[in-house]
Amino acid sequence: MEYFLNQLVNGLCQGAIYALMAIGYSVIVGVVGMVTFAYGEIMMIGAFGAYYVFQFIGINLPVALLAAFASSFLLGIIVYKLCYERFFNAPRHISLLCTIGFSMLIKNLVQIVFGPETKPVLNIIDNRTFTIPLGSAISIDLKLLQIVVMVLVVVLAVTLTLFFNRTKSGIALRAVSQNKDAAYLMGINVKRTAMLGNCIGCGFGGVAGILLAIYYYSISTTTWGGFSMKAFSASVLGGLVDLRMSALGGLCIGIVENLGITISSATFRDVFAFGFLIIMLVLRPQGFASKKGSRV
């Protein structure tokens, strides 16, 4: 029992990072209206932005998180200008292919500029474990790193929700997400707002990137495609544009993966993740989202 609970904690923590990735992804899809396959590389740039903060100014987590957000936010402008802005009225596959090409370009450029070797991200958060008793015979081990990651993800998700509901820019983003034509008629600059939404989504991806690097103690240039697919899957599970449900999708994928490994082998991690996605979509094609479709 204790073993399963510890695996559940592992799954929750990993799921929390997937949730943050999925939130960023859903913001992009919701506001821009197109899926992206450059999200993994966007996360990577955020992770590298924060990594160089650690290198040059030392271990300062808030500054590193800001650097991750800012680097991916800035990359979001380039992605928007190159892959989306010119193709709003073109067939959707054109911008989709652009994002695939862009992701390859960034991945290889990063390998050339920063080097192909995996870089260590050690000792950012103290390696402490808390044993929490859950009765006389059962306890769970909770690492400080896991607590920090989960708290950060919750804080960021709440901040984003407040931004969307309490600020003028946030409400404009929701308007663009719901109906671009109506938003335009209401005087909203749709292109600029869509770009802002894309950049915010990218920024959240960047923060998820550095959290992944901290959680796995390293940054590589090659593992981000898999994370991008997980973000996409979680977002699809949440109905693509519903932030809360996408976050739930991310959490579910993290938990299913880890519990799957518990009963079988880590080789089947993706089998469990994508098997779960397929079963869910067969049973509920709209994902966790309501049929009406709650948007960003």
């Binding site: 073993y3 695996q7 518990t262 880590a266 080789t267």
Partner: peptide
């Protein structure tokens, strides 16, 4: 024995399992 795919990044659940 525990095995993983070559692109694996998360080993926390494998470690929890092996530690047992």
């Amino acid at each position: 024995e525990e095995k993983y795919k070559s692109d694996e990044t998360d080993f926390s659940s494998i470690i929890t399992k092996v530690k047992l």
